[in-house]
């Protein structure tokens, strides 16, 4: 088996300004399935085709934004090894005991230099995708409720020192660079797309003065047609759309950026290519950055670099 170590982004926790309004949005508009609530007031969701208990957590707060992202690793042994590797690399880590998050095992937490709280975990209860593991159907009614993405797929973070975050993710956790936008003066990158799988990105970063900011959390759809259906559902439900439906030059995914009721941007996307760790990274220059981000408009919109939570 080739895919070992860090497998995928498995959960995000986001802050929302009005919990009830957000539960309605995540359940009926985005079309996730609520799987639990805990004593801290957090509400847990998963996409219909995900098997693990949860992938999206929200909690009421007086600011919007991202609390943390967690990546699943292939075993408890890997979790222990990566914790030791992070410490050896000089990264301070903290262990959050199993059960602090519902149906989730021990988490190893650390702060990326970009200001984002990053977690690793090995265990989350498999509650299935509503189908038996023997002789399943192709899909279930939940696959048509709301936008109904297949899974939480990746996220884009904004913060300073993206090269330091890249070093930790590459050197310690085994991520690799798929695409990047080089700054005009060649002093570094404006943005990086990193993969820990054969996805074109599992996490991405844009250089930004304020630490710990969220640009978007992304959800995968099966087809371009479903991206268009998502756009219709956004209009039917008066969801604020940032841009799209359109296509990214970077990763080649078809996409819509829109906002949850608290202003946390989310993406519903399809496609993009598959990557492998031996692939040469694709470079974009600042002169063509518009085409890289929004392939059809060929220009950044007003909000791409300025609107984050």
């Amino acid at each position: 088996m080739a895919m070992t170590g860090v497998l995928r982004p498995g959960h995000v926790q986001m802050r929302v300004l009005d919990l009830e309004e957000s539960i309605h949005f995540y359940t009926n508009v985005l079309g996730l399935i609520e799987t639990g609530r805990d004593s801290q007031g957090r509400v847990y969701f998963k996409a219909w085709d995900e098997r693990d208990h949860n992938s999206v957590l929200i909690r009421q707060a007086d600011t919007a934004g991202l609390d943390f992202v967690g990546f699943k690793v292939d075993s408890v042994a890997t979790l222990d090894q990566l914790e030791a590797d992070l410490k050896a690399y000089g990264v301070m880590t903290e262990r959050i005991p199993a059960g602090e998050m519902l149906e989730t095992g021990d988490r190893v937490r650390f702060l990326l230099p970009t200001g984002h709280t990053f977690e690793l975990y090995a265990e989350k209860t498999d509650i299935g995708n509503g189908q038996p593991y023997v002789n399943p159907e192709a899909w279930i009614p939940a696959a048509e409720h709301g936008i109904a993405p297949v899974r939480f797929d990746h996220l884009l973070c904004y913060g300073p020192d993206i090269e330091k975050a890249q070093a930790i993710l590459q050197d310690v956790l085994g991520f690799y660079l798929v695409e990047h936008i080089e700054l005009e003066d060649g002093s570094g990158d404006l943005a990086i797309w990193l993969s820990t799988s054969i996805k074109a990105h599992d996490i991405a970063f844009v250089r930004h003065p304020e630490p710990g900011k969220l640009h978007h959390v992304s959800f995968l759809l099966d087809s371009w047609e479903k991206v268009l259906r998502a756009a219709d559902l956004m209009s039917i439900n008066r969801v604020s759309i940032d841009i799209g439906p359109t296509r990214h030059g970077v990763t080649r995914g078809t996409t819509i950026y829109a906002f949850d009721p608290s202003g946390n941007r989310f993406e519903t996307f399809c496609g993009g290519y598959q990557s492998y760790p031996d692939g040469k990274p694709i470079k974009w220059t600042m002169g063509d950055v518009g085409r890289g981000i929004f392939y059809h408009d060929r220009a950044l919109n007003d909000t791409f670099l300025s609107v984050v939570t």
């Binding site: 919007a64 604020s240 202003g263 946390n264 909000t303």
Partner: peptide, 14 residues
């Protein structure tokens, strides 16, 4: 033209 609508959810501050 150019009025940045931002997030329209009270989150981004624009």
């Amino acid at each position: 033209k150019g009025i940045p609508l931002g997030c329209r959810g009270g989150g981004c501050g624009v």
